[in-house]
Amino acid sequence: MKIGELARETGVSVRLLRYYEEQSLLTSHRSASGHRHYTAEVPTVVGHIRTILPCIEGPSPDIHPCAQNYLQTHLQDFDTQITTLQRSGTFLTNLLTATENFRTSSP
């Protein structure tokens, strides 16, 4: 999606989206003509930025309580996803090992 579409979808100005990109909060891919293109996930990222940024206080990484629960919930979600992926990886490793063992032991 182009930057104008992203601005319309998120309600964030084009200028602010460019600022987010300058601050490395967003990434885009440039077309041959130099236009910014964003992936389908970027509107969600913009929503996260809009939720968290107002809760940062001062130059240090001090987070206002308004964002602490939000961040804690997402951290727990990440931990759950990581655990699920690790279990899936272990399952696939065991399956591949069993398959290889079966093939090498078969006549």
Rank of each mutant, 00 (worst) to 15 (best):
L75Q: 11
N69H: 08
S24D: 14
P54G: 08
E22L: 03
H37W: 14
L25F: 13
S88F: 15
S33P: 12
S60V: 14
I49C: 07
P43S: 14
E21N: 00
V46L: 03
T10C: 09
Y70F: 14
L71H: 09
R103F: 12
E9V: 04
I52F: 13
I63C: 13
N69I: 03
E100N: 02
H37G: 14
H64Y: 10
V46E: 09
F102A: 01
G58K: 00
T83N: 01
S13E: 14
I52H: 11
R8L: 02
A67L: 00
L85S: 05
I82F: 05
N101P: 08
R50M: 09
K2G: 07
S88I: 15
D79E: 11
L75P: 12
T80W: 13
R8V: 02
S33L: 07
D62G: 06
P59L: 11
H35D: 14
D77G: 03
Y70M: 08
N101S: 11
T90L: 15
S24N: 14
A67V: 09
R15A: 04
T10N: 01
Q72A: 10
T104M: 04
F102M: 01
L25T: 01
A7V: 10
S60E: 03
V12W: 08
H29D: 03
L25P: 08
L53Y: 05
S28T: 08
H29W: 14
P61Q: 10
G11P: 11
R87I: 05
S105D: 03
Q23P: 02
T27M: 07
P61A: 10
Y20W: 07
R103H: 08
Q81V: 11
E100C: 02
Q76T: 05
C66H: 09
L53V: 00
P43D: 10
N69G: 15
S31L: 10
L17D: 07
G58N: 12
L17H: 10
R30G: 02
F91M: 12
H35V: 00
F91K: 05
Y20K: 03
D79S: 11
E9R: 05
F91G: 01
L6S: 00
A40C: 14
G34P: 08
D62Y: 06
R36K: 11
T84D: 06
D79V: 06
I3F: 01
G34F: 02
Y19G: 00
T10F: 07
G47T: 15
F91Y: 13
R15V: 12
A98W: 02
T90I: 13
V45N: 14
R50N: 06
A98R: 01
I49A: 12
T39L: 08
V42S: 12
Y19R: 01
A98S: 02
Q76V: 06
A7E: 01
S28P: 11
R30D: 12
H74G: 09
T90C: 13
S33G: 12
R8C: 09
F102Y: 06
S60G: 10
N69S: 15
S88K: 13
T73C: 15
D79L: 00
V45P: 00
N69A: 15
I49H: 06
H64N: 10
V46N: 02
H37N: 08
E22T: 12
T84P: 00
S28I: 09
V14P: 00
E41C: 06
Q23H: 04
T84L: 04
